[in-house]
Nucleic acid binder design. Sequence first.
DNA 1: AACAAATGAGTTGTACACAATCAAATAGCG
DNA 2: CGCTATTTGATTGTGTACAACTCATTTGTT
Lengths: 143, 143
Amino acid sequence: MSNNLQLEKQLCFRLYSLNKLMCRLYAPLLKELALTYPQYLVMMVLWQYQEGISVKDLGGQLDLDSGTLSPLLKRMEKQALIKRERQTKDERVVLIKLTQAGINLQQSAEHIPAKMFAVTGLSAENLQALNLTLDQLIENIGN
Amino acid sequence: MSNNLQLEKQLCFRLYSLNKLMCRLYAPLLKELALTYPQYLVMMVLWQYQEGISVKDLGGQLDLDSGTLSPLLKRMEKQALIKRERQTKDERVVLIKLTQAGINLQQSAEHIPAKMFAVTGLSAENLQALNLTLDQLIENIGN
DNA sequence: AACAAATGAGTTGTACACAATCAAATAGCG
DNA sequence: CGCTATTTGATTGTGTACAACTCATTTGTT
């Protein structure tokens, strides 16, 4: 009677569930900004790289490949949040830059992290400890 | 200079990344069984409910709705891992049951949890503590 | 019995993820 | 210089997620 193959025992299932729960918690907040969750992640990177960032480096930050990013960025371009400029120096790389609207959106997003922290019901210490554990895990299994 | 909107600081991003990393670690093992990761989760539920389970209850276990499960189950039926039987008692519910091939697959999957545990690089105690923390978090934010 | 509300499953449309493949551009080497 | 290998991004195809909707079948109420 091997009990190993049980959902409730497995770390992977908790991560799977928690990730989905998190996305659902973000959804209503992000809807006000007309962003999906992955688009919000992209925006967070761009707010830190206002000088622009290549699709490749963006993918490096988010651990996503161009197969995911290209259509996603195209949708964001249609919403006028970003613009794409092909680098003259190396015609292969496309630089992603925020538009003014994209820059302005940062203010509207400022309240989100605190709100999300509140719903976790964790103390600041517990959150930090959890983050460290997860970082360790990412380090262990990441490639 | 609000640093709140930074990827590295946010729990959600760790969960997002870890979930993806986990899926990628499972992928090669599951490929041998011709299963995707969500299909593997479904199989784990079915191995515990060999008498059959309704689509609704399956969705309850996995936190998925029929919009996701219906096509997924259809693909698994095409692979002859499961069969669907409409209940006579209540014609609305469809009972999902394993085929013999689906039952047999459990043996082939038996080695997976131990293998996955190994790659986490966590001690049994640390894994248990992490599981408890995540359970608490799921409890806090789940609905 | 009659009929409105609720339930269970499926369908449709949108948006990720990712493998596999492709095309263009550049770098590197003989 | 010319040729090949690599790099970068885009495209295609498959498989989730999920909201919104449809449809058939109960269930509840009168």
